[in-house]
């Protein structure tokens, strides 16, 4: 049955083949060094343009350079949670074995990016807004996102049966996804201190090309870093499960 689907539907077949952990391990092992190299290159270029070869803002002066660290971190925080939600959906609907592994791998990385976005935001807010923290809708919803990541990680560790932990975490991931549109549109719905989107709006971005270039380079670098970290963590998790399985098999054989 699996082979029939694979030949009939090439894209479905790809995901099907990935369900084999050994095959995934090989693919991920091949991809990781390339992506890591891309991340290093993009970070070098992005930091060069961001910290040195880009104009200063006419109001914020050099403080604007915090943007190149802060904005991609916030994007990645949202993307990481989307990954959790999609992984949860894929696990519950198609029971793809890698979906659960992807959730395990992405959650702490996403929490780290969210934390980075919050900290760099505070560092940027201090000189520009004159305060480390305001209870603005965008800031509050990103803080909630951070707690959602912590809840996801804690829920994963709260069960003895891995199956049960995977399903519970998948449902929590889907429920928490309600927060994503709230974060995205908070700056439009509530007119507060945080500025509205200036890059991802229809038509031309409201940002100078000289500033957009390092921002996009940094976003690419963050994206590569995220993928590398998730792939490495997924391989680690798969190896850990394999060791667990081998150990319990050996324990069974000794008995």
């Amino acid at each position: 049955m699996a082979d029939a689907t694979a030949t009939a539907n090439p894209s479905g077949g790809f995901w099907h083949r990935l369900a084999n952990p050994a095959r995934f391990q090989r693919l991920a092992g091949w991809l990781t060094p390339w992506l890591a190299a891309a991340a290093v290159g993009l970070f070098a270029a992005g930091l060069y343009f961001g910290l040195y070869a880009s104009p200063i803002d006419y109001q914020q002066k050099d403080n604007v350079r915090i943007m190149y660290v802060h904005v991609p971190a916030a994007w990645l925080a949202m993307m990481s949670y989307s990954t959790l939600a999609i992984a949860g959906f894929v696990l519950l609907v198609w029971r793809h074995p890698l979906a659960d592994v992807a959730g395990v791998a992405a959650a702490p990385v996403g929490a780290a990016f969210t934390f980075l976005a919050l900290v760099t935001g505070a560092i940027w807010g201090q000189p520009t807004w004159g305060t480390w923290w305001v209870w603005d809708a965008r800031l509050t919803s990103v803080l909630i996102l951070f707690f959602l990541f912590l809840g996801y990680i804690a829920l994963r560790n709260a069960f003895d049966e891995p199956e049960r932990a995977a399903k519970a975490a998948a449902i929590l991931g889907l429920v928490g996804a309600v927060n994503l549109p709230i974060i995205k549109f908070s700056v439009d719905w509530w007119n507060t201190l945080h500025q509205p989107a200036s890059v991802t709006r229809l038509g031309t971005p409201a940002i100078d090309p000289a500033m957009l270039r390092p921002l996009m380079l940094m976003a690419g670098a963050y994206m590569c870093l995220f993928t590398v970290l998730v792939l490495v963590r997924m391989r680690l998790e798969l190896t850990r499960r394999r060791i667990d399985a081998l150990q319990s098999a050996r324990a069974g054989a000794i008995e």
Binding site: T140, L155, A158, A168, V175
Partner: peptide, 25 residues
Amino acid sequence: VCAALLVGARRGGVLMTLLALPLYI
């Protein structure tokens, strides 16, 4: 929803705070 997720969990009561409060905001 949080209570249902935590059925059978270790330390369910403590975790309830972590899961439910962010969703209550």
